[in-house]
């Protein structure tokens, strides 16, 4: 029996637009399990990214609950949310979003320094380890602008996990990468998941979704189906792709 790490009940998100309201999420119920590599898929405009941001507390839902460790994220103060972001959650963006005038090493260590459970030197050591693991230790003093997209995204992953988050959120992490870099990033995320890291990823790329242990399909702000998969193995990739594509097609993707 898996433990639920994060769940939402009746999650709603609306935006004001031209004097009216656009309802993106209309009562989303979802459970995310500990240790899973969960992927949210859906057509463009289905609300998958909004779901990710609402669940992670990056964006405040307009209704419903998001429960993490028994607390409702929706009702948290800015300070509590900030603590959640640098302590319990990690986040990877599609456009990497590294601070442009910090070196890769500094981009990774800044959230680390916010974590009071580690000293600065322990954070530096952990950052070095992560950079080594991500294959970017040779460019640690480079600014983001001096690195390739893949290198930047690997740095963003290292930044996201510097504080050993309970749950790692990823919003289309391969969306801005070429094929080779996409594979490298997905391999890293799979590796992280194998080591016990819970991941919740949004993607519209079926190939990326194949890395998941569970796929949720969202349409018009509601979850309409889920698919559980066995742990990812490289040799099973083709077979998983076929299975996932068939499931997605059945859901109207």
């Amino acid at each position: 029996m898996k433990n639920i790490i994060l769940s939402s009940r009746g999650l709603c998100k609306s935006f004001a637009h031209n004097g009216g309201q656009i309802h993106i999420l209309t009562g989303l119920d979802v459970d995310i399990y500990e240790g899973d590599f969960t992927v949210i898929m859906g057509a463009s405009g289905s609300g998958k990214s909004t779901t990710l941001y609402s669940l992670s507390g990056m964006d405040r839902a307009t209704g419903g609950q998001v429960l993490y460790k028994g607390k409702d994220i929706v009702k948290m103060s800015e300070k509590e949310l900030a603590s959640l972001r640098h302590g319990d959650f990690g986040f990877i963006f599609q456009q990497m979003h590294l601070v442009s005038n910090l070196t890769l090493f500094e981009n990774i260590t800044v959230p680390g320094y916010l974590n009071k459970s580690r000293t600065a030197s322990e954070t530096d050591k952990r950052a070095d380890e992560l950079m080594e693991k991500m294959g970017i230790s040779h460019i640690k003093t480079h600014l983001p602008g001096q690195c390739s997209g893949g290198e930047q995204q690997r740095c963003a992953i290292a930044r996201a996990v510097i504080n050993d988050p309970a749950l790692l959120f990823a919003d289309e992490p391969t969306g801005a990468l070429n094929k080779r870099n996409t594979t490298e990033v997905l391999d890293l995320m799979t590796e992280l998941n194998r080591s016990g890291q819970s991941i919740l990823m949004v993607t519209h790329d079926a190939r990326a979704a194949c890395r998941a242990s569970r796929i949720l399909y969202i349409e018009d702000g509601k979850m309409i189906g889920s698919l559980d998969l066995p742990p990812y193995e490289k040799q099973d990739e083709k077979r998983r792709e076929v299975q996932v594509n068939a499931w997605l097609t059945a859901n109207g993707f």
Partner: peptide, 14 residues
């Protein structure tokens, strides 16, 4: 503006 958003995203408060 973007950098400030990133800092917020990694856990810094306003």
């Amino acid at each position: 503006r973007t950098d400030l958003g990133i800092y917020k995203a990694v856990g810094m408060v306003s």
